[in-house]
Design a protein around this nucleic acid. Structure first.
Lengths: 253, 253
DNA sequence: CGTTCCCTTGAGTAGTTTCAATACTTGTGG
DNA sequence: CCACAAGTATTGAAACTACTCAAGGGAACG
């Protein structure tokens, strides 16, 4: 077990592999203390609906959540969150969100009231800057999704998505050597990749047929990661993990 | 001429129609004073390239800019900015961006060093919160684009884009009664809508043929705005202007 | 006056959608 | 333990949308 997660069981994965090293021990503790209570969310349930006036924000502790927008009965996923993500921190400055946030499978979350966040951030501008940073990571991921949707066919999109999830879970020490395990269904993948469930099924069997990746009931397994990434035109830079864009030590944030 | 723009010629359009009413006179002046110099940017030129270490941010004063990502020679637009947008404020917390920001047509910008922004924000947490808010508006627009790409065909995407630009220009008092005028080409529209220039041409002639909108050398004219918005499945809520999600007065930010 | 960039139109191909039918999984209650 | 229902996944066929390649028209700028 990762020692950060031992020391900070609710927030130990926050920004792990990104800017977590820039947090002091006191700041990590302040973050952990932000969480007033934890809750279990049932599959498909929303912790937050479009337009709600929000007065607390949610740290995802265990499981996967989707940002979804409903339109004319269809469901469109515009974001995916993994443990360590402060899923609705956007609502702290925005107060209301334009989308729902729903659990995929069973999910455990920690809840922090905006009043408490406010108190901590006004005393600690550095932490405020870090939280701002974390919301902009979501924006960077949104941009990559836009590019992916503009450019790739369904099978390539699926491969790209697998790469992204794999990397993000790896950064928070939840990936496996040969893939990852989530509660995502093919329907979820279709909603994320902007295609129909039927076409997603075909795309996945193509990936399987070419020996690139197998997806079965939420398990993604790929023997040759480089091949998967090449197929998905995946470059992890936009995740601001180790690499080109990563905050260097010379920079104080 | 709008009085805000008279009083604050460089930043008077910042968050106009959104949270600008929450700024005090002093804060508006502090923002205006952030801008150290102005510059003209030539068509197609980038003020910032992916991976650059950035130490200043840019207020768009006049013209339109695109956020673009290059991949295998093709160009993909992942965002569009209009006057009043703090186009690369994302780089203030992120330090490096994942995309380029380029001028469409001739553009005038104001430049604010991060050192100066830092000084002002540390003295004014309320203003810091407002700037954070403004970067999350970009994220909300990104999410809408994701949904639009997942859902709509090229002609509908174009209509949606026209609606968005029209509304955004309207909020900063730069729209016309029957449309708007920019320096966008059909190629730009294609890069934004994730289609080929050929297909965008066909989509536009379809919109023209059905009497929904005419686009010619950057001028967009639509007689029946409601019809255009219906065709583009457009709902301006996500822009956080007047409407459902708008910050209410009861909320202090 | 010609180059360059932007836009248009046609034709063939590739990818996706929808509808429909079928099968597999999982959990529930008899 | 089996039967059933609900949700999930697969496959086929026809219609549609978009892509690429290619050729040509038109406006703007020097």
């Amino acid at each position: 077990m990762n020692s950060e997660v031992e020391d900070y069981p609710l927030t130990g994965r926050f920004l792990m592999g990104r800017l977590r090293h820039a947090l002091s021990r006191e700041e990590k503790q302040a973050l952990e203390d932000l969480i007033e209570e934890t809750a279990l969310v049932d599959p498909g349930c929303a912790i937050l609906q479009r337009g709600d006036l929000v007065n607390c924000s949610t740290m995802l502790v265990e499981g996967v959540m989707l940002r979804v927008i409903h339109d004319k009965g269809r469901r469109f996923a515009v974001g995916i969150q993994v443990p360590g993500d402060f899923v609705d921190l956007h609502a702290f400055p925005l107060k209301r969100l334009d989308h729902d946030i729903v659990a995929v499978g069973k999910v455990r979350v920690g809840v922090a009231s905006h009043a408490r966040i406010d108190r901590v951030l006004s005393k600690n501008p550095h932490l405020a800057r870090i939280l701002w940073f974390s919301t902009l990571l979501d924006a960077a991921i949104h941009r990559e999704w836009i590019m992916k949707l503009e450019q790739l066919t369904a099978a390539h999109r699926a491969a790209h998505l697998f790469c992204e999830i794999w990397h993000r879970l790896e950064m928070v020490a939840l990936a496996r050597n040969d893939g990852f395990r989530t509660a995502l269904s093919q329907i979820d993948l279709a909603d994320i990749c902007g295609t129909s469930a039927v076409n997603m099924s075909r795309a996945l069997s193509k990936l399987k047929g070419e020996g690139i990746a197998r997806f079965h009931r939420g398990h993604m397994v790929a023997q040759d990661r480089a091949r998967l990434e090449a197929y998905g035109r995946f470059d992890p830079t936009y995740l601001y993990g180790p690499g080109e864009l990563r905050m260097r030590d010379e920079l104080s944030l």
